[in-house]
């Protein structure tokens, strides 16, 4: 299986990058935008913890390791699941307003997971994944 190639080294590489991103966002943004820095730190650090705990659980149960596509969608999903409600709440509290760029990003993420949902349902209805 080609997937297994990514099992150890790829996940380590991704978590390494995420941990670095967490540290850098905290360090660089602390001065100029403290809340943004802390938010970046929580998101990237949280992603590291989730990925590693999932991988440990997968090892323990002998399940198939996640593929790069799944890791990508998991990361974007976890980030979006925290960032967008945060933005909506900030909008409600009057400390954020939507710009064309942020609306574009939000719609892009929405389309991405709409495709994922449709493909999942399609595979499920067909009975067997291709």
């Amino acid at each position: 299986m080609g997937d297994n190639r990514f099992d150890g080294s790829f996940v380590q590489f991704v978590t390494g990058l995420l941990a670095a991103a967490a540290a850098v966002s905290l360090a660089l943004l602390s001065n100029a935008r403290p809340l943004l820095g802390v938010a970046g730190y929580i998101i990237f650090g949280g992603a590291v913890v989730v990925i590693q705990s999932q991988r440990d659980a997968a090892f323990a149960s002998g399940a198939r390791p996640q593929t790069p596509a799944e890791i990508t969608l998991t990361l974007i999903g976890l980030t979006s699941a925290m960032v967008f409600p945060g933005l909506v709440a900030a909008d409600g509290l009057g400390v954020f307003s939507w710009t064309p760029v942020s609306v574009g990003i939000a719609l892009t993420v929405a389309v991405l997971y709409a495709i994922y949902g449709i493909v999942s349902v399609g595979h499920r209805l067909r009975g067997r994944p291709a």
Binding site: R64, T67, A69, L73, L112, Y116, V119, H123, P129, A130
Partner: peptide, 19 residues
């Protein structure tokens, strides 16, 4: 279960390919 895992695997693959 494993079937859901296979679906998630295929769905992730096709999502990123289509996107």
């Amino acid at each position: 279960d494993e079937r859901d895992e296979e679906i998630a695997h295929a769905a992730a693959f096709w999502t990123l390919r289509v996107f």
